[in-house]
């Protein structure tokens, strides 16, 4: 395999994404976990740029590293957490879940490397933002509108759920 710039960029981005995720699993302070996962989301945005999806990369940074991370940090701050999680004890439950997830991962990876994925001959597909907009607002118009309704319902539902209940007389 020849070393290209794309390969180097992919290597760096995937190492930082996986590293952020692994740090998220191993850190003890909840706030540090949130920051590590924000770093992972940022690296995934870089992967999107490698895959010719610049609009998605910007959306990823705006929504995940911006909005969702801040939302989660609010969630952490509004609930009383023991600042240090319990020291990582290695009990039998963790061992079994590690074995299960590891087996699942091995099977998935085996399937990925076994299946013959046909890569396309035509590589000049237009992935511009203009095409994305045309696709959303012509072919996927109805799902787009349904998504907007869902966002509205989720907004109202979240506000109602998180509202403090009045004391019933």
């Amino acid at each position: 395999m020849n070393i290209s710039g794309e390969l180097i960029a992919f290597f760096i981005l995937s190492v930082s994404a996986i590293g952020g995720a692994v740090f998220m699993m191993n850190l003890t302070r909840v706030m540090h976990m949130a920051l590590a996962l924000a770093f992972t989301f940022f690296s995934i945005a870089g992967v999107f740029i490698l895959l010719d999806a610049p609009f998605l990369a910007v959306t990823q940074i705006l929504i995940y590293t911006g909005a969702v991370s801040i939302l989660m940090i609010f969630g952490i701050m509004l609930t009383k957490h023991k600042d240090e999680e319990n020291p990582p004890s290695f009990d039998i439950k963790k061992l079994w879940s590690l074995i299960g997830v590891g087996a699942f991962f091995a099977v998935v990876l085996w399937i990925i490397y076994q299946s013959p994925f046909f890569t396309s001959e035509e590589t000049v597909t237009d992935f511009s933002v203009k095409m994305l907009g045309k696709s959303i607002f012509q072919q996927y118009m109805i799902p787009f509108e349904v998504t907007s309704i869902l966002l509205l319902v989720a907004l109202i539902g979240a506000a109602v759920l998180a509202k403090r209940e009045e004391k019933r007389k």
């Binding site: 999806a53 998605l56 939302l71 992935f127 994305l132 996927y140 998180a162």
Partner: peptide
């Protein structure tokens, strides 16, 4: 380009899910 459109929808649904979950 449909894959990217699906990803946009997934991001929107995931954001709604995070808000309701919190």
């Amino acid at each position: 380009i449909s894959g990217q459109v699906f990803t946009l929808f997934t991001i929107a649904i995931a954001a709604a899910e995070a808000a309701v979950g919190i």
